[in-house]
Nucleic acid binder design. Structure first.
Lengths: 183, 183
DNA sequence: GAGCATGCGGACTGTCGGTCCGCTTCGATG
DNA sequence: CATCGAAGCGGACCGACAGTCCGCATGCTC
């Protein structure tokens, strides 16, 4: 990749973040993002392919720390801890992530409306949760339960829950659901 | 309402259903619905206000039998039965409804993307499920748990689950989740 | 059958995602 | 440093679509 391309890529991602932060998830058109990045629309599309691609990459970026934490031993999240603990810790982190990136979550959902289950970040999360549920071994459809659990972080639901009670309520409600599933 | 208005209203709803059945949820533009109904676009908008309004009414129509069943005593669904039984019966019915109306569910979701929690049909379902969970009385955030449970009927998730195992799997997975929540 | 509220239709508008292509810039090579 | 091809750029352009508007038609009431 040429150096100007790299620079533009970064500019676009930062512009998108800034618009999400300042305007919320609605009314973020790609024209606007391109303009804010000081870049032509063609450039945006060459880099990211589509609206979907842009928000997927943005989410992947924001989720990368968590993705790493999942795989490195030494915390409650990582391999080595009992599955129950890992799951609860993971969900807590996800709640934090959702709180800090509600607008991004919303925009991402909107952009991935078709093929919601083909987003790489979501797939990783889902595989992780499914594995943990299966490992903890209740007699449930683990794959399904994982989807249901991750559904808690649907942007609208999360916003609604946090509107009364903040992240604390989101975390504790999700933990309650997770415990019920594991029991 | 004038008689031609009533007739057109019906024609629009039937045309929308037919397009959903024949084309799936994507690419159903309101122009197309109006054309298929043999009606001008203005008529459609005067009747239903917006895309959202159209699909909300269509869903309400399809859900009306269930809405009635919920309130009339005499079946497992109705008042008089123990909350657990009522909940499971309700979810079974919802699964049937979802199976028969997958495309409508999808279109409805798309159309209600903003304000998903302001749809009257969803609100009724949610109130019902919340009440039943609260009545069965586990130490859970009933409102939240109801959203999570209803999330099972997200069109994409339902399709995905039914792709391997049909309604039977959807029903049993949802029942499993519901039992876990009530336990 | 006259008068009018109600309703009709479809041309029109503004917005947006995505494409296209002639021009520019980067950076490898000698 | 000069050359040159490949990589990248930008923004005019396109097609689709939700939603509006208004002059005309139609059903209803008296």
């Amino acid at each position: 990749m040429r150096s100007d391309a790299t620079r533009n890529r970064e500019a676009i991602l930062r512009a998108a973040e800034e618009l999400l932060a300042s305007q919320g998830a609605e009314h973020i058109s790609l024209d606007r993002v391109a303009a804010a990045a000081g870049v032509g629309k063609g450039t945006l599309f060459r880099r990211f392919g589509s609206r979907t691609g842009l928000f997927q990459e943005l989410l992947a970026e924001r989720a990368s720390a968590l993705a790493q934490a999942i795989e490195s031993p030494g915390s409650a999240l990582g391999p080595g801890s009992p599955p129950e603990e890992r799951l609860l810790a993971f969900l807590d982190e996800l709640a934090e992530l959702a709180e800090r990136n509600l607008a991004l979550f919303a925009a991402h959902e909107r952009a991935c409306a078709e093929d919601k289950y083909r987003d790489p970040t979501y797939l990783r999360w889902h595989a992780h949760v499914t594995a943990l549920i299966a490992e903890a071994g209740p007699g449930l459809d683990a794959e399904f339960a994982a989807h249901a659990l991750l559904g808690s972080f649907d942007a609208d639901l999360a916003r609604h829950v946090m509107a009364e009670g903040g992240v604390a309520r989101l975390k504790s409600s999700v933990r309650g659901l997770a415990r019920a599933i594991l029991a």
